[in-house]
Every structure is written in C-alpha cells, then in structure tokens.
Amino acid sequence: MSRSLRRGALAATAIVISIASLTACGAGNDAQTLGVKPDNAAVTVEDIQVQNALVITQPDTGRRGPAVVSATIFNNGQDSQTVESITLPGTATTVKLTPAKGSGQVVVPAGGSVVLGGEGNATAVIQNGVPERKSGDVQEVVFKLSETGDVGLQAFVVPAKSYFEGYGPSERPAPPATKPEKPATKPTGEPTAPETGEPTGEATHAAGH
C-alpha cells in the first residue's frame, strides 16, 4: 500500500470517529465548540461549514447499487438554510435528499447543524451509485445551500464496511441469481416389453391331430 493510501485510510478512520461524536451532539453546537479538527474533507464558506464528508459505496467490490453522501453541515449564521441539492461533478448521478423526519427539504438551523447519514438522520442517496470509483479514491462533492450557494470539497470514497457500515446505503441489491441446472434428458420413445421367454400367441396343434 502506498504512503498516500495509508494516509487516506488513517484519515478516513479519524473521520468516522468524528462523525460518531458529531451525531451525538445536539443542534446549536458549532465546529469550534465541538473541537473537531478533521485532517481533510472539510470546508468553510461564509456561514456554512461542511465536515467529515464521505462517499460511501456498497460493501462488496463490483456490486452495483445505491451509494450515499455522509457529512455534517454546520450553520454558524443567524438564519436557517436549506440544502437545495448535492451534486458529484464529473459523474452522471442523482442525489436524493430526505430529511430525518417526514418529507420536504433538509434544513440546517441557525446556529445548529445537520448530519447526513446514519440511523435517525437525514439522508443523501446517490441513486445510481458511483461504480467508477474505488475505495481510497476521492470524489468532488458540491453542497448547494439556499443562501451561501455552492460549497464544494473533495471527499474520500469508502465501502460500507467496518466503521462506515452504519452510515452506508440501506438498500443492498440482491446477489445475482444463479442459473438452475438443466434436468437430465428423458427418453422420447415408449419402452419395449422385456422378453420373458413365454409364447405370445396360441399354440398350434401338432401335425396329425
């Protein structure tokens, strides 16, 4: 494993530990108060700060299926903002945003935060996945906020295994169906009667009777 990939793996592990800490914190805490300083996958634009952004794919290599964007979005401003969209430039993907409860937009409250991914949190599902990306790659992710506009960063791509399993896609495609074995070929003709050694017709009278 190269030095850069080792750094990426260690950073990704640190990220998920930070995610767990952030998920446990209630709204109203900003990044400075939490004291979280991730090494990567973080960006601040005006009042919006995005931390611990990840693209989490299916757990098995080569398995096609939905992926998700996981991140924590902080709003250090005095007005709430909505996450209008999330895009992955360079890919033909659609990201479906769903709030933690009910339907509608994902709202980042003023002075608060919202977590994408994980049980009980809002979700950002990449419906057709990112099959061209492998674990350890990076993917540009752009969050569009209602007031701040585009907030982009480079996110690690990781499979939904180990630390990331609880934050990965909930929909897992079924394994490919195996082809049933072909039945043995049956004979097409009717079986002939076995020879018994007995005469099949009436016996003829002996000559002279």
Rank of each mutant, 00 (worst) to 15 (best):
A110F: 03
Q51N: 10
T57Q: 14
E84N: 15
A155L: 04
T33E: 15
N75L: 08
R172A: 10
S170A: 13
T94I: 09
L116H: 03
I56N: 01
H205P: 11
P169V: 08
I48D: 03
G112F: 04
D47R: 09
T200A: 12
N75S: 12
P38S: 06
D47G: 07
G129N: 12
I15G: 02
T33M: 15
E132G: 14
T148P: 02
L145H: 02
A177L: 15
V151W: 03
T94R: 12
P131W: 12
I73S: 05
G35S: 08
D30M: 05
P199G: 06
P194N: 08
P169E: 09
T23E: 11
E171G: 00
V158S: 06
I17D: 08
E165T: 14
Q154P: 00
A41W: 04
K144Y: 03
G117E: 02
V157H: 04
T94A: 13
P194W: 00
T204D: 08
F156N: 04
P175V: 10
F164C: 04
Q105Y: 04
T44V: 11
V50A: 05
Y167S: 01
T72S: 10
P59M: 00
G90H: 09
H205E: 14
G111R: 05
P191A: 13
G26Y: 01
G201Q: 10
T82V: 12
A122K: 02
I17L: 11
N75F: 05
V141Y: 06
S21L: 12
V95I: 12
P159W: 04
A31W: 07
T192H: 02
E165L: 13
G197K: 09
D137P: 08
V142Q: 06
P159T: 06
K161V: 13
V36Y: 04
P66A: 12
D60G: 00
A177M: 13
G166E: 04
Q105T: 10
A110S: 13
S18P: 00
A20E: 08
N52C: 11
T23G: 07
G189K: 15
I48N: 03
Q49H: 07
I56W: 00
A42R: 09
R133H: 07
V114W: 01
R172K: 13
I73N: 03
F143G: 04
V138E: 08
E181S: 14
P169T: 09
V125M: 06
E195L: 11
V45I: 13
G104H: 11
K101E: 12
T178H: 10
G112R: 05
Q51E: 09
A12C: 08
G168T: 03
Q49K: 11
V69H: 01
L153P: 01
L5T: 10
H205C: 02
N76A: 15
A53N: 02
A71D: 05
P109Q: 06
V68G: 05
A207W: 06
S170F: 02
A110E: 07
L97P: 04
D79T: 12
Y163W: 14
R3A: 14
T200L: 13
G129Q: 11
A184N: 09
A41M: 10
A53L: 01
D39A: 15
G201E: 14
A203E: 14
T200V: 12
I86D: 05
T123I: 01
A203C: 02
A20C: 01
P191W: 00
P175R: 11
A71Q: 06
L116V: 03
L97A: 07
T82S: 15
N128I: 09
A92K: 14
G152D: 07
E46V: 01
